[in-house]
Design a protein around this nucleic acid. Structure first.
Lengths: 203, 203
DNA sequence: ATGTTAACTTATCGTCGTTAAGGAAGTTTT
DNA sequence: AAAACTTCCTTAACGACGATAAGTTAACAT
């Protein structure tokens, strides 16, 4: 049992090492050029070795997603702690989300390189533990606080949360993915959109 | 010259035929399973034949995009003609965009399967003719009308147009791409978001 | 010493986008 | 009418991909 533990400990260590290298490869080379073979080369192992630690490429991408979500989640919690006014908290949370996307375009793209149902079936998402789920729930809480405090209109919390979320995600996605388009200044767009959204749901 | 014309006419005809089959394959099989080889099989020609009519896969995807944008653009013009109140026109335009995305998820995905700069460099987009450009400009015009009529706040037209656009595109993209997530009712989200956006920019 | 297991390799499969080279048919030139 | 050229399409192949099968090596257990 002791040995088993030791082994699985090394195993987990190596897995995390691969993951770290994978994330770096993703960031430096971008999604389009990220391949299992290149990753194998980067860690100086043969390609099949990766498959001993990850079921397949999607599994690995999901793991990267979770790492990214974890990083986002941790910072979001710090932001929440910094503000007392619920509306101010929400504003900063929205702005931080956009900033995170702008600063980490490659990480952000991972989420959209995955299959539509990589997080499982519709019901499974809320049952399984995931940083993606945690991030949504904490964001939902912020919105709920605004409603409870009477600062935002009383309406279905999920509808409000999700409509806010998709709006800011749209900004990040579009500016990242459609670089041919003559976008206005990103930061201008960000503050205009967030202002508009909050104003739109103001009580 | 007459013969040349005849030839290029047939050539164009075949090209459009391939395009039509490609779009159908895209719709029925989805982006992930769309391959040049399958398309070749579908039109009963060998794979390299397609390359006589399209430079490469991206070129073909771009052509599909333009077809989709053309369809969207045509319908959008009809909607504009139907309403006189500028704000009402904008509302319907936003709702139609979302509806279009919901009803044509596969076509919509084409735009995001393309390389970031498939429409050329940043300056080229506005110079070259494209249905994507036309769609943006007509949408921008609607927004401009609302501002001019004093119904929406006076601010940079492009910033307002683009922030509205990315918000609704976010809704479509997220619901299409992240199907594991327990979204609220799509139509509820759509009307809530559009209401919020218009309210947010109201004068 | 022998059997067992884990970790890793090489070799390979099937698929993809794409290109090279060539052939068949029609068109133009002589 | 024969020869040369052009157009259109084919077969064959390249390199890269994700992934699997089968085999090797070394550590460990008995």
């Amino acid at each position: 049992m002791g040995i088993q533990q030791k082994r699985s400990k090394y195993r987990e260590e190596f897995r995390r090492e691969i993951l770290a290298e994978a994330r770096e490869l993703f960031i430096t080379e971008g999604y389009e050029k990220f391949t299992m073979r290149k990753l194998a080369g980067k860690i100086d192992y043969s390609p099949p070795t990766i498959y001993l630690y990850f079921k397949n490429k999607d599994d690995l991408l999901l793991a990267i997603c979770e790492e990214v979500a974890e990083q986002y989640f941790a910072n979001l919690k710090l932001i929440i702690a910094r503000y007392t006014d619920p509306l101010q908290t929400l504003r900063q949370a929205l702005l931080y989300f956009i900033e995170f996307g702008f600063n980490n375009p490659h990480q952000y793209k991972v989420f959209f390189s995955m299959k539509p149902d990589l997080y499982g079936k519709k019901e499974e998402f809320m049952e399984k533990e995931s940083m993606a789920k945690n991030s949504y729930l904490i964001f939902r809480e912020i919105v709920q606080d605004c409603i409870d405090a009477g600062r935002l209109r009383a309406m279905d919390t999920d509808v409000m949360t999700q409509s806010l979320a998709v709006a800011v995600q749209g900004l990040v996605l579009m500016t990242i993915y459609r670089q041919s388009f003559p976008w206005a200044d990103r930061n201008l767009l960000a503050s205009a959109l967030v202002d508009c959204l909050l104003r739109g749901y103001l009580k």
